[in-house]
Design a protein around this nucleic acid. Structure first.
Length: 489
RNA sequence: GGCCCUAUCGUCUAGCGGUCAGGACGUCAGAUUCUCAAUCUGAAAACCGGAGUUCGAUUCUCCGUAGGGUCACCA
């Protein structure tokens, strides 16, 4: 009997960057385990030595950690079902392989890759589906022993039953039936002594007591092989659920590096908040059936259910909507939290950020004000610099732009110069009240006056409210900027 | 090509035989404080096609069509 405790896993291969699609798969598995008060574990599937990338495992674990996901068992951390790295479990696989071999559920194959390639060519010529011709199945015990003793290179294949319908009840797609005659005698042990994915995954999921497997759709067709292996061993199989693939907008193939950013860590580097990315990812194939859209991880765990996962083939990863989620999270931050996220982001990812320069020049209080004004206006943290440069540098003034908003900008600037010069208490509320009433009482155009001031102070036509900005810059600086402008034009 | 799977606004989706087919992003228009953003209001925008079942199909069945997946000693 399979364990009552729900146990799920994510099993990445250390062959490169942790994929954003893998993060969604992880999220669903994690949520399912946590919803059921179960365990979620990380296992590293590094049986392909040719694609192994040094250091990739640690980077992957760090990414998962950066996204704020905690796993209960895994490499480094450990657990009672370890080791959690497949290359450290070779003796275990060998042990289980021997069971299959003695039960004649698997057989040695001494075919060379040359022979297999030739076979494939022949099949292709006749437009037939490739299936291993079981050339080595007919070998006698003696022949096998001879070849083994001689040290011939070999692989081990599983013996797929001749004519059965293998069916399973997919948690998402429902009943799936695949005829065994369409399935190839899958290699279980490669000639380098490492198991293939199909073999290792079954042994490990069983030994690690995995109860539910939510994975990408590319596994649908190999699930019968896994089911068969469970049957060969007389193990109870976990429940499988196959998720829809992710693609980029405008493409109809699953996300590839060529088309855009597929690396989970890069989103954080670009200045997306982990919780925003996670929130967006939640909705790529799942929906609570209500109108709630902003989900924390905890809330997601609460509402998540496998039944609500969408049955479809391809889902568009839409960066525009991701940006919306991110800006929504940014807006919700207090100025203080925004500030610390910004600083931490800049430090962690070694991203250049003007916040450092700003802190040298402005008081902590002013910094928080700058944060308050800025967080409403950016979608990703990396946009920050482009929104605050005028706090540090005086603008290069362009008289033609000034002329666009006022035919008499010198007068306007002189008006502000004298008015501002007279202000004693240089606070926002005071300035706001004073400047507005002055402009009004002289029956002047608000737009003309404030736009001219804005351009003079910042050099931009789009900024937060200009009076907020001058209250932060301070009287001295503002007067100096206005005087400077008057001299230039 | 064989096999498996899928099909609602541009995108993510709600819908589980009877709905003015709902929401969100995006787009457009209006309101609003000095510009912008935000906010609020409103608009345009979808059931792939054809048969069948049914009093009635977006919903069930079949056939097309389109798309995805898979056919490695990769995962």
């Amino acid at each position: 009997m399979i364990s009552d405790t729900v146990r799920t896993r994510i099993a990445p291969s250390p062959t490169g960057e942790f994929h954003i699609g893998t993060l969604r798969t992880l999220l669903y598995n994690y949520a399912w385990a946590k919803k059921n008060k179960g365990n979620f574990l990380v296992r590293i599937e590094d049986t392909d030595r040719s694609r192994y990338v040094e250091g990739a495992m640690n980077r992957m674990l760090e990414v998962v950690n950066d996204y704020g996901i905690n796993w209960d068992e895994g490499p480094v951390k450990g657990g009672s079902f370890g080791p959690y790295i497949q290359s450290e479990r070779l003796n275990i696989y060998r042990e289980y392989l021997d069971i299959l071999l003695t039960n004649k559920k698997a057989y040695y194959c001494f075919c060379t890759s040359e022979r297999l390639d030739k076979l494939r060519e022949e099949y292709a010529k006749e437009n037939k589906n490739f299936k291993y011709d079981r050339h080595c199945l007919g070998l006698s015990e003696l022949e096998i022993k001879e070849k083994l003793d001689r040290g011939d290179s070999y692989a081990v294949r599983m013996r797929i039953p001749e004519d059965e319908i293998i069916s399973f009840d997919d948690l998402i797609l429902g009943k799936i039936e695949i005829p065994s005659k369409d399935i190839d005698d899958q290699i279980l042990l490669k000639s380098d002594g490492y198991p293939t994915y199909h073999f290792a995954v079954v042994v490990d999921d069983h030994l690690m007591k995995i109860t539910h497997v939510l994975r990408g759709p590319e596994w649908i067709y190999s699930t019968p092989k896994h089911i068969l292996l469970y049957q060969f061993f007389d193990f109870e199989a976990p429940r499988f659920g196959h998720l829809p693939n992710l693609k980029f907008l405008g493409s109809n193939k699953k996300m590839s590096k060529r088309e855009g950013n597929t690396s989970a860590i890069k989103f954080l580097q670009e200045g997306y908040l982990p919780e925003a990315v996670l929130n967006y990812l939640m909705f790529l194939g799942w929906n609570p059936g209500t109108e709630k859209e902003i989900y924390s991880l905890t809330e997601f765990i609460e509402d998540f259910s496998i039944e609500k996962i969408h049955r479809t083939d391809l889902i568009t990863f839409d960066t525009v909507k991701l940006r919306w989620f991110n800006s929504a999270y940014l807006k919700n931050l207090s100025p203080k939290d925004f500030h610390s996220k910004l600083v931490n982001w800049s430090i962690k990812f070694n991203m250049p950020c003007l916040i450092e320069e700003l802190e040298k020049k402005f008081s902590p209080e002013d910094i928080l004000n700058i944060c308050k004004l800025t967080k409403e206006r950016l979608e990703v943290l990396s946009d920050f610099d482009s929104l605050v440069d005028y706090y540090l540098d005086r603008p290069n003034l362009d008289a033609t732009i000034l002329g666009k908003y006022s035919s008499d900008y010198k007068n306007v600037l002189n008006f502000f110069l004298t008015t501002i010069d007279s202000v004693e208490d240089f606070t926002f509320s005071n300035l706001d009240e004073l400047l507005h009433s002055k402009v009004k009482e002289n029956n002047l155009s608000m737009k003309e006056y404030f736009m001219t001031l804005r351009i003079c102070i910042t050099g931009e036509i789009v900024t937060p409210p200009i009076i907020e900005i001058i209250s932060i810059l301070g009287k001295e600086e503002v007067i100096s900027r206005i005087k400077n402008s008057l001299n230039l034009i």
